[in-house]
Simulated scan of single mutants.
Amino acid sequence: MACPSEIVCKAPANRPVVGRFAPSPTGRMHAGNIFAALMAWLVAKSQDGSIVLRIEDLDRERSKACYVDAVQRDFEALGLTWDKGPYFQHDRDEAYREAFRLLQNKGLVYPCFCSRADLHAASAPHRGEKFVYPGTCKNLTDEQRKERALTRKPAQRLIVPDTVYAFTDLVQGDYRQNLATECGDFLVQRSDQAFAYQLAVVVDDAAQGVTSVVRGVDLLCSTPQQLYLQDVLGLEHPEYAHIPLVVAETNRRLSKRDHDAAIDELLARFGSPEAVIGHIAGITGIAATCEPATPEQLLNGFSLASLPHMFADKVQIAWR
């Protein structure tokens, strides 16, 4: 068996740095969201860059107008300023549709009739492993597709090559993933016709000039899929930095749904936006102490070169 090819992805040099805040308006921000936004701001501003605000309201059912307003007020109160936006995903369907048509024209998309229950019954991953789509619907005949479409609306999957995608993350270092064996063909459109996150985020980052993506390490394994999409769509690669997750007790992720370390509670506990920022900076290692600080004050001691050492071997940071 031939060895898979490897594509090493590098972000183009000498571009203006444009970072992004990309909150989902499904609840009030919590400490983990603030940490991610603060890091995105510091990484961009330390390179004389700018910040885009994008409201990721792709999930129409869970997104609420009240949270759209609240997230902007929260960023402003915390001193996390942005330079362009806000942009919204809810009015970007035509851009996603155009990208989807390009994938179709390249013969890279096929309908998938599998339910989530079907997939997990066929190949349930072990704890900590990524689900790999087994290709169940890839080779269906036209007749089989017509028959299945009578009872179920299909999602749409993107065919991936037997290729290793590799890149160097500013925090996690070298990372590589074989798209065929470690991911499988992935969704670009859901069965309800909504476009999938992977496609939307790639199209939006390119359209909004984003060159610096800072986000949680839980999305590290999605990055090779997005790099592949960028290549197929003829888009440039951003530079990526995947930071540790802030977690609650027993390593549970902070959640908007559970109101974990929500911003109102943080302000009540610490007394001021500066105290909230300072505490988060202290427990995550951005600053040496938890003393109150503004993002501007933290910028004075921030160095891009220190990122790998700041979070060395950390994938989680306990909230306290």
Rank of each mutant, 00 (worst) to 15 (best):
C137Y: 04
C137Q: 02
C137A: 04
C137W: 01
K138C: 01
K138F: 00
K138Q: 04
K138Y: 02
K138V: 03
N139C: 02
N139I: 03
L140N: 08
T141C: 06
D142F: 11
D142K: 12
D142I: 12
D142H: 12
E143H: 10
E143A: 10
E143G: 10
Q144W: 08
Q144M: 07
Q144K: 11
R145E: 00
K146M: 05
K146T: 03
K146A: 07
K146S: 05
E147H: 00
E147T: 01
E147M: 01
E147S: 03
E147Q: 02
E147V: 02
R148A: 02
R148L: 03
A149I: 02
A149P: 03
A149E: 03
A149L: 03
L150H: 05
L150F: 01
T151F: 02
T151C: 03
T151Y: 05
R152V: 00
K153I: 02
K153M: 00
P154G: 00
P154A: 00
P154N: 00
P154D: 00
A155Q: 00
Q156R: 05
Q156C: 04
Q156I: 00
R157T: 06
R157A: 06
R157Q: 05
R157K: 07
R157C: 05
L158G: 04
L158Q: 06
L158M: 06
L158V: 04
L158Y: 04
I159R: 08
I159G: 06
I159N: 07
I159T: 08
V160M: 08
V160E: 08
V160N: 07
V160W: 06
P161T: 09
P161D: 08
P161A: 08
D162V: 08
D162T: 10
T163P: 09
T163H: 12
T163K: 13
V164L: 14
Y165R: 13
Y165A: 14
Y165V: 15
Y165T: 14
A166I: 13
A166E: 15
A166M: 14
A166D: 13
F167W: 15
F167D: 15
F167P: 14
F167K: 14
F167N: 15
F167I: 14
T168M: 13
T168A: 14
T168N: 14
D169K: 14
L170E: 13
L170H: 14
V171T: 11
V171P: 09
V171W: 10
Q172R: 13
Q172C: 11
Q172T: 10
Q172H: 10
Q172P: 08
G173D: 09
G173N: 09
R176H: 11
R176W: 11
R176G: 11
Q177H: 12
Q177T: 13
Q177I: 12
Q177Y: 11
Q177V: 12
N178A: 07
L179Q: 05
